[in-house]
């Protein structure tokens, strides 16, 4: 007699919302982990420089450090807004 479930399913369960949000933020923070301590500041400054020329979102600049053998590669990704 789980007919009450019918009423419960009207709105999304808050626990599944919590899980989705956590998966996104944890994945992002793990991506930044292990890199040099200056990365967040570098990211902010690059964002400020870009904003002198074009209005972009807070998450428009992505920075990652990859290791390939002895070599460290700084990968910089800038997403520009669609031009209307």
């Amino acid at each position: 007699m789980a007919f009450l479930d019918y009423f419960r399913s009207e709105k999304k369960r808050s626990a599944s919302l919590a899980k989705e949000r956590l998966q996104v933020i944890v994945a992002r923070e793990r991506g930044n982990r292990g890199g040099p301590d200056y990365l967040p500041a570098l990211q902010q400054e690059i964002l400020q420089v870009i904003r002198r020329y074009i209005e972009v979102d807070d998450d428009a600049v992505r920075i990652e450090v990859d290791r390939e053998g002895d070599c460290e590669v700084l990968e910089l990704n800038v997403t520009l807004p669609d031009s209307d």
């Binding site: 419960r8 369960r13 626990a15 599944s16 899980k19 956590l22």
Partner: peptide, 16 residues
């Protein structure tokens, strides 16, 4: 509360 979908379950936490 987990049963009602109001709280993260053990499976959710372990997965994350």
């Amino acid at each position: 509360r987990v049963g009602k979908g109001e709280m993260l379950s053990i499976e959710d936490i372990c997965e994350i």
